[in-house]
Design a protein around this nucleic acid. Sequence first.
DNA 1: ATTTTATTACGAAAATTTTCGTAGATGAAA
DNA 2: TTTCATCTACGAAAATTTTCGTAATAAAAT
Lengths: 128, 128
Amino acid sequence: MEKQINIKPTESELEILQILWALGKATVRQVNDELSKTREVGYTTTLKLMQIMFEKHLVSRTDEGRYHVYEAAVGEEPTQHMLLDKFIGTTFRGSATRMVMQALGNQQVSKEELEEIKKLIDSIEKGQ
Amino acid sequence: MEKQINIKPTESELEILQILWALGKATVRQVNDELSKTREVGYTTTLKLMQIMFEKHLVSRTDEGRYHVYEAAVGEEPTQHMLLDKFIGTTFRGSATRMVMQALGNQQVSKEELEEIKKLIDSIEKGQ
DNA sequence: ATTTTATTACGAAAATTTTCGTAGATGAAA
DNA sequence: TTTCATCTACGAAAATTTTCGTAATAAAAT
């Protein structure tokens, strides 16, 4: 049974989710430190975002002493899945194939990864 | 030499670009009719969006009699490419492979399409 | 005990995106 | 010619997202 993967996170929220998925649990301070590596962002900005995400149930939190310790409340895979579906719909008119072909053509993908993908295709073909 | 594919269109703008890519040239009225098939949207809303897109050079337009006839000023492929790069970056932490594997696993992709992708992989492997 | 530091809550400002009302112009219909 | 319908331009309202200032609180340091 999966959590509510209906709510589409905003771009900033997704950034924070990424960090939480990587760290597991984290305080606002930790998340803000991570964010600060890429761009300048005020502590209270991050705090506010995470409070909003808490209200939206995108993250959960527990009181630990006097801090809040946050954790992603939505899974990485289901979220990626949802975003991928939406993205394929809006950008590639629903054609996963077209997108995959562009991705393989455009991006740097190693020989090993290409082999991995071929294996996946084979197993899908066997399965269906 | 490619057009300015730096500007990221908003969601609504992308919707309109899709329509223009499909129709080639179109008046605001035509675009609005297309949009109205999916969701309710006022004529002036569409008009305003397209005017903004004109200022951003996302679309071009020509006076034809007393109308404006619009056309996409950015190509479909380069735009998709740019959006795909950004998307892979934000949602899949830069790993095209992870995204492709999810897409193939999650989406409905026919046997023919899978074969097509395998062929593409083969040709990439030969090429590099 | 007092000061300093770090945290949260709250609210509102700023920025961006989306929507729409109104006015003016032009051609078509009556 | 007058009316009607359609289109554009403009500006501003509404909605959403992002940013941050201020105050309150509590622990830690002096």
